[in-house]
Design a protein around this nucleic acid. Sequence first.
DNA 1: AAATAGTTTGCACGGACTGCAAGTTCGAGT
DNA 2: ACTCGAACTTGCAGTCCGTGCAAACTATTT
Lengths: 218, 218
Amino acid sequence: MQTEDVVAGGRRERKKRETRLALAAAALRLAIEKGPDNVTVEEISEAADVSVRTFFNYFPHKEHAILGRDPEDLERSLTRLREAPAEQSPLTMLRVLVSQALADFEDKAGDAKQRFELIGRSPALLAQFVLLGAEDERALSAALAERMGEPATSLRPALLVGAVTTAVRVAAEKQKLAGGHEVPGLTVLVDEAFALLADGLDPAYDRTILTRDQEGQS
Amino acid sequence: MQTEDVVAGGRRERKKRETRLALAAAALRLAIEKGPDNVTVEEISEAADVSVRTFFNYFPHKEHAILGRDPEDLERSLTRLREAPAEQSPLTMLRVLVSQALADFEDKAGDAKQRFELIGRSPALLAQFVLLGAEDERALSAALAERMGEPATSLRPALLVGAVTTAVRVAAEKQKLAGGHEVPGLTVLVDEAFALLADGLDPAYDRTILTRDQEGQS
DNA sequence: AAATAGTTTGCACGGACTGCAAGTTCGAGT
DNA sequence: ACTCGAACTTGCAGTCCGTGCAAACTATTT
């Protein structure tokens, strides 16, 4: 614990970081070149100059390497959430959070965006991505519940986080779908979605409908 | 086309249906018995008395067989959506739809519920389930957009469907999490979620926050 | 320098899934 | 009833993923 702590740890830790990075980078590069489903773990390991077996010491599947998610990202969002000004309302906090996350995303050179592109092209990748996202969602819900002073079992914080996630996803899909055709821009779409969530998705919702076809359901 | 058309087609079609059914049933049974991740395709095929190769003529993965989804279910929902009374507002339509879908779900003997149980226990299963759900969501969004007379690129229908899906999911999670402890019942939770979506998730949402850290974005 | 703990690697294995090339079975026409 | 073609099943060979294990190697500590 007393070497240059610019990047803490001795040679061991440094090498580990390097290997992990090399693997993720190789995975990404090859996935772009050959299509995410035509890359083999062998190729990736080769490119990073380690054995196949070692690859699996670092990542549980091929997909994780390609996605190369940085655990810091979630940490950062959680911290931001916990430190948000007390006077902000929940949805406002989340709006700021999304805003910051998108900004972070823009900063990450091309990598993050290329990864994002790939996800749309491989179901396997998409599946892993969604799974990781679900974990994040749980963590964020818990943090928000605490922030709002509600019990962890409460519906509202979870629904808020879920709806916001959905909003961003839907906005991103619409954005991509329109394919460059003078689209409103992601930020604008996200704003629109947040406004809808805030005001209510449907002012004409008819509550009386419910009681019709439901009896005793514990 | 002139045999007993109770279940249209000749011996060929009938056998196909039977095989598919036998495979799905065997898959489900074994998944329950041994845990979804400890079942092999070989066992399933054996139980249904076909070759492994044949299994893959019917299902693209093991997971599909276990989930054994009925394409009719989506069809039914789409039809219902298209035939909904014109005076119903969008969210109301969706509420009715969910209500009916949950009722269908209850009717399906134990199968559907057991499948649902399993999903929570296997990431692989969950991943496939989510992927299938995403397709449904797209189809429903399109139908709803048309029903609302909005262009397919419009944000609101997609957001509505997405948010509702999320609402049901979140409600189901909360329900399960509480594990029998005097929980409010799924229907009640779903109602609560719909009410929140209808009224707005956050009346105190602060719109001014947005303009702060965003400049020209196409 | 030696003991220790963390890492890498090869090997062997089991399981998913695919393409191909026979076989079989079914359905239709004659 | 007989025959022919289409649809379905099957075995085989092969690729790739992912894991447990034990041996080799390397950094760290004392």
